[in-house]
Amino acid sequence: MTTTTQRDLFPGALEMMILRTLKRQPMHGYALVQHIKRTSQDLLQIEEGSLYPALQRLLKEEFVKAEWGVSSTNRRVRIYKLTAAGAKHLEREVLSFERMLEGITRVLAPGES
């Protein structure tokens, strides 16, 4: 039997990826999900619906702002933009994540007892 172990992302990971994606350009929800899936080459299995609570948290913290607009497929969608506060938050989060990753990598490095 083949089993695929799918692990949850650590808290804040999805928000960080959303902010990083929005740093490139404003997007609506569906485009955000597609971009994250495509960029991660489907290594990250993100439940599409989980994006919206994360976006709501970012809206509440004023890390992103939203305006209704029209998508490339001519649909009425809400387009999210990164705010200055969001950009600063992203910098802090990325730095923190890199430190954590470095620590984990050192612990997992071969040859260490």
Partner: peptide
């Protein structure tokens, strides 16, 4: 977040079902 802003933000919250429906339509 102060109260006036939070009240305004409730509009963002109420708009969400429409946004989710748009997402599903686009996916379909």
């Amino acid at each position: 977040m102060n109260w006036p802003r939070q009240l305004f933000s409730r509009r963002l919250y109420r708009d969400l079902p429409e946004e989710i429906q748009a997402h599903l339509d686009e996916k379909v």
